Simulated scan of single mutants.
Amino acid sequence: MYASPLRGDPAAIYRQVDVSSRVQSASPHRLIQLLYEDLDVALRQAAFAIEKKQFEIKSARITKALAILFALEAGLDFTKGGDVAETLSRLYRGARSEVTGAGVSGDAEALRVVAANLAEIAAAWRQIEQQQRAAA
């Protein structure tokens, strides 16, 4: 009998396939946008989990947000990016510090502030991609 490798929770399988297809077809700028989108969701879910005293979910979402911030910083090209890369690196380090502190203290609003601040950077990445598509 044929055994499907896609077993388990159908929603989890869909999410895995959806993420895989979004990543495979994405430009470098779009990949960064996807990271920012996932970061925003993780931060807002962590804030909600704090308010609802869902500590396991809070911990998982904060861990995901921190991993994304590390990934964003690791992807910086300091040779080509110069001052912009340095500024983004400082921003990501500061955001990690804020997220960690908010997670320890249970400050949901601080997580929302970090999400809002990073949303401005995410908007700039969207604008860069739109300009590149228009130029192509």
Rank of each mutant, 00 (worst) to 15 (best):
W125D: 02
I121R: 07
T87G: 14
E120R: 07
G106E: 09
A123S: 09
G81D: 05
G103V: 02
R126L: 01
G103S: 06
S105C: 14
G101H: 08
G106R: 01
G106V: 01
L76T: 05
A110T: 08
E109L: 11
G82W: 15
L111I: 08
A124H: 11
Y92S: 04
S105Q: 14
G81S: 01
V104S: 13
L88T: 07
T79L: 09
E120Y: 01
F78N: 06
N117L: 06
E129S: 04
L118S: 02
D107A: 13
A123Q: 05
T87W: 00
A102Q: 14
G106C: 00
T79H: 08
I121S: 10
R96T: 11
G81V: 06
V114A: 10
V99S: 04
A95W: 07
A85P: 03
V114Q: 02
L111V: 07
I121P: 13
L111P: 00
Q127M: 10
T87S: 13
L118C: 04
A123W: 04
V113Q: 10
K80P: 13
F78A: 04
Y92F: 03
E129V: 14
N117K: 03
D77P: 15
V84E: 12
S89I: 01
G82Y: 15
R112D: 12
V114E: 02
D83V: 09
A115K: 09
A124C: 03
R112S: 04
K80I: 07
A95S: 07
G82F: 02
D83E: 13
A108H: 04
I128W: 05
S105V: 15
V114M: 02
K80G: 15
A102G: 08
L88E: 06
G81W: 00
Y92L: 00
G106S: 09
A102R: 06
A123F: 00
A123C: 10
G94S: 09
R90P: 08
G101Q: 09
Y92R: 03
R93K: 13
N117R: 12
E109R: 04
S105L: 14
V84P: 13
A95I: 00
W125L: 05
E129C: 03
A124Y: 06
R96I: 04
A123T: 14
T87V: 09
A108F: 13
T100M: 11
G103P: 07
L76M: 04
R126P: 12
R93H: 06
R126Q: 07
L91N: 07
D77A: 11
A108I: 11
A102H: 11
R126S: 04
V104L: 15
L91D: 00
V113D: 12
G101F: 14
A85L: 14
A95N: 06
G82A: 10
G101E: 05
A122V: 03
D107K: 10
T100V: 14
R96C: 14
D77Y: 14
K80R: 15
V84N: 06
A123R: 09
A123N: 05
S97A: 15
A122T: 12
W125V: 00
E120N: 10
D77F: 11
I128V: 13
R93D: 08
D83H: 05
L91Y: 08
K80T: 10
A119P: 01
F78Y: 08
G101L: 05
A119Q: 01
K80D: 05
D107R: 04
